[in-house]
Every structure is written in structure tokens, then in C-alpha cells.
């Protein structure tokens, strides 16, 4: 119970937090652009995990062995991330087209309830796909410790999270900051009507946002499966709750905010497990959320915006 122990907990917290952050991006991007709390995002991630599990079986990745993380394994994982990302992205776009787009002018809570409805539908699909019990996600990476000595544990799985999450986030930042699509997204987010007036195809930009959010969710689902090693049709709920909280904590609509929010949540969970007790960890996350919002009502990095009247 020393500095080393503290360091270990921080390491766990940051790794977990990176995963939460990746999921939070899907919430924050969609919220940023159409002010919708996409309740179905967590369950979309669950569907991605279902596909990942099926693909692992189909590719025979399980047989790739756990002794060393060979090139084949890493390639397989990269392929999984790509396919599941694509799948989730396309599903998200389809849902936007079918469910949310017709509701653009409806009262504010109508799309919210639709999103809840979509999340139920996803859960039912997951129930048939996985069955009612939790399923074990195969261990594709060796369990060996990558750090020397006994004090700190940092395995291949932890490395995997960082290897996938950091580049994806960097790519997203670049995309939003410096590409044409990114500019269009920011324009629509600021003022839909004005963006349309200067020639931005709003519906396409929104669809692209849904695709990107879904893609990141799909990637997160693969990482989740490999990192946590258990998936189940109800996992979306808990994931969604944390990811959504991360997005709000960081300032919903802000991409760096979601990342920071995710990391804070990971750290709070790990440290409260270590020093307060496992069973209080969930409550600590939300208690800290409430406290932060009371003092910074727009989240850590959010801008103070006037609500549309």
C-alpha cells in the first residue's frame, strides 16, 4: 500500500478511462450536432461486441494462441476493429435515417424516447444473438506482464487499449479540426440553418457524424471484448451510463472534454475501489459528477452556451 500501489491504481484507472472515453465520443459527437442524448449508443456497442465475438469464432482467431501476440493476432484484431467499426457506423447511420431524421422538427423529447426505443430493440437483438447469459470473450493476448518486476502490472491487454484508443482519438481530432467534413460538422453544430444557407448538406453531415460516432463505438466494442473478456446483452446499459456521464462531465459536445471526462471517471472508479471500497465505486463516480456540475454547470471543458429559445 504505497506509492507503487497508487501508481498501479492510476494505471488501471487511465486504461479503463481511455475505453470509457472512446465510448463517450459517440455520445458527445451526436449531442454536439443534433442535441440528442443517444441512449442507444451503449447498446450499439453491445451489438458490435456480438459481431466481434462471432467474427473471432469465424476467423478462428482463438486458435492463434495466447503464448505470444503474433503478427497474425494483431492483424486479426485490426481487422476486427475495422469490421465492427464499419458495422456499428452503418447501423447508426441507418437508425438516424429511419428513426431520428423524421423527428428533426418534433418536440425535443420525442427523439430521446425514440432512442430509448431503439436501445430496447438492440438489446432484444443482442438477447437472441448471445443468449440470456453473459458470454466469455476469448483471450487473444498473452497475460504476461510487460513491465519489469512484480510491483506494477501492465499487460498486453492494457497496451492494446492505448494502442487503439490514442490513434483513433488523434485521427478524430485531426478530422474535426482540419478537414472539410470537420468544418461542416462544426458549422452544423453551431447553427443548422446558417450552415444550410451557406451550402452545407446538413443531413449528410449529420449522417457522417452518426457514422463516425458509431465507428468509434464499434472499435470500442472490440477493445471492450478483448480487455474485459465478458460480454452480455445487458452490457450496453452500464457502458452507456458511464460513457454518457463522461461526456457530460467533460462538457457535452466537446471532443477533448469527452476524453478528459472518460479518464476522470476511470481514475475515480479505480481510486475509490482502492481506498473506499469496491461497492461504493459506482456511487462515487456519480457523486463527483454532481459536485462538478454544481460548481461548473457546463462541464469541465464545455462552453457556456445560451439555450435556443
Amino acid at each position: 500500500m504505497s506509492a507503487l500501489f497508487f501508481l498501479q491504481q492510476c494505471l488501471i484507472g487511465l486504461t479503463n478511462g481511455a475505453l470509457v472515453a472512446l465510448m463517450a465520443l459517440g455520445y458527445t459527437m451526436v449531442y454536439g450536432i443534433i442535441r440528442l442524448i443517444n441512449f442507444a449508443h451503449g447498446d450499439l456497442i453491445m451489438l458490435g461486441a456480438c459481431l466481434a465475438l462471432t467474427l473471432v469464432g469465424a476467423f478462428g482467431l482463438e486458435a492463434a494462441g495466447t503464448a505470444t501476440a503474433g503478427v497474425a493476432t494483431w492483424l486479426g484484431i485490426a481487422l476486427l476493429v475495422g469490421l465492427c467499426g464499419l458495422f456499428c457506423g452503418l447501423v447508426n447511420v441507418a437508425v438516424d435515417r429511419l428513426v431520428y431524421r423524421p423527428l428533426r422538427d418534433a418536440p425535443k423529447l420525442a427523439p430521446l424516447v425514440s432512442a430509448i426505443g431503439v436501445s430496447f430493440i438492440f438489446m432484444n437483438i443482442g438477447l437472441f444473438w448471445l443468449g440470456p447469459a453473459d458470454r466469455s470473450f476469448p483471450q487473444l493476448l498473452p497475460t504476461a506482464n510487460l513491465l519489469p518486476g512484480e510491483g506494477l502490472q501492465f499487460g498486453w491487454k492494457d497496451l492494446l487499449v492505448l494502442v487503439v484508443v490514442v490513434p483513433l482519438m488523434a485521427a478524430l481530432m485531426v478530422l474535426v479540426k482540419s478537414t472539410r467534413l470537420g468544418k461542416a460538422m462544426r458549422a452544423v453544430s453551431q447553427d443548422e440553418t446558417a450552415a444550410a444557407l451557406v451550402g452545407v448538406d446538413v443531413d449528410r453531415v449529420i449522417a457522417a457524424t452518426f457514422f463516425l460516432g458509431g465507428f468509434l463505438g464499434g472499435a470500442a466494442s472490440v477493445i471492450y471484448g478483448l480487455y474485459i473478456n465478458t460480454i452480455g446483452f445487458q452490457m450496453g446499459f452500464q457502458n452507456g451510463l458511464y460513457a454518457f456521464t463522461a461526456a457530460v462531465l467533460g462538457g457535452i459536445g466537446s471532443i477533448p472534454g469527452a476524453v478528459i471526462g472518460g479518464l476522470v471517471i476511470g481514475l475515480v472508479r479505480a481510486l475509490s475501489t482502492a481506498y473506499v471500497g469496491e461497492r461504493w465505486a459506482g456511487a462515487m463516480v456519480f457523486a463527483i459528477l454532481i459536485v462538478i456540475l454544481v460548481f461548473r454547470p457546463e462541464g469541465l471543458l464545455g462552453r457556456r452556451t445560451k439555450e435556443k429559445v
Binding site: 428513426v99 423524421p102 423527428l103 418534433a106 418536440p107 420525442a110 427523439p111 424516447v113 425514440s114 430509448i116 426505443g117 431503439v118 436501445s119 430496447f120 430493440i121 438492440f122 438489446m123 432484444n124 437483438i125 438477447l127
Partner: peptide, 18 residues
């Protein structure tokens, strides 16, 4: 159950958003 529930929510919101 969940699917019926979800579809009902989506349809009602689609056709009677209020």
C-alpha cells in the same frame, strides 16, 4: 418483449410525437 416495447416507442414517436 424488449423489441415490441422498443418498436412501439419508436412508432408512436414517429407518428404522434406529442
Amino acid at each position: 418483449r424488449l423489441a415490441i416495447f422498443g418498436i412501439a416507442l419508436v412508432l408512436v414517436m414517429r407518428y404522434r410525437p406529442e
